[in-house]
């Protein structure tokens, strides 16, 4: 059951990330906006991360068949996803803290994170949780400012992914409990919530125009 849920999660994550990444890329190609460029990197990374984990599960299921998921691939996928979450949080940090500074727009702001775990996977899950929680809070604050209803879905989606990451990380403490299945289910709900407002953006009349680059 858990294996099936993981597969569904990783496939949905891959597809949602890819779709939003492509839309961001079209936006960047048409407008040249740095925000859309960061979103492109973010969602292509998130998509690639889910894809790598999904490949790990598929390899285990059809090729290796040891009964244990390849931890190296899983960790790599989580690291790639964390890069994506970082770029979402980074875009918010630029908007909130450095709206007028050209210097801070050009360099990366690498926040410090206090983590106690020794395993790389745990560290990156913790970092993902912080970045997602930050992104959710900033998106919610943006909703309070602009009353854009789409932002509620995105904030809910990011918050669900954060909660899912937290429960996923916590499930290492209680490995045989329902926590991991719950974590995966919450993340699936989060990804669907992320996709809802984006699916309403009309892209039919937008086209690539090489002259605008």
């Amino acid at each position: 059951m858990e294996f099936l849920l993981e597969n569904i999660l990783n496939l949905i994550g891959f597809l949602v990330g890819l779709t939003i990444g492509i839309m961001s890329l079209i936006g960047f190609r048409n407008t040249g906006s740095p925000t859309l460029f960061r979103l492109t990197i973010a969602f292509f990374s998130i998509s690639a991360g889910f894809f790598v984990i999904w490949i790990g599960y598929m390899l285990e299921d059809f090729v290796i068949k040891t009964g244990n998921i390849e931890r190296g691939l899983q960790t790599l996928g989580i690291i790639i996803q964390t890069v994506g979450y970082f770029f979402i949080a980074f875009s918010h940090s630029i908007k909130s803290f450095f709206p007028k500074s050209r210097y801070f727009r050009t360099v990366g702001i690498f926040p410090l994170f206090l983590v106690s775990s020794v395993q790389v996977e745990h560290i990156f899950r913790s970092v993902s949780f912080i970045l997602l929680a930050y992104g959710a809070i900033e998106t919610m604050l943006s909703y309070i400012e602009n009353k854009n209803r789409g932002a509620i879905f995105v904030a809910f989606g990011l918050a669900s992914l954060a909660l899912g990451e937290f429960l996923g990380w916590y499930s290492f403490v209680f490995p045989e409990s329902i926590l991991n299945s719950l974590s995966i289910s919450i993340k699936i709900v989060g990804l669907i919530a992320l996709f809802i407002p984006i699916s309403k953006i009309p892209l039919k009349r937008i086209k690539f125009d090489s002259n605008l680059e």
Partner: peptide, 13 residues
């Protein structure tokens, strides 16, 4: 179009 898209993420393009 993409202003609306970025607005959904609480961002401005």
């Amino acid at each position: 179009t993409f202003t609306t898209f970025a607005d959904n993420f609480g961002l401005t393009i």
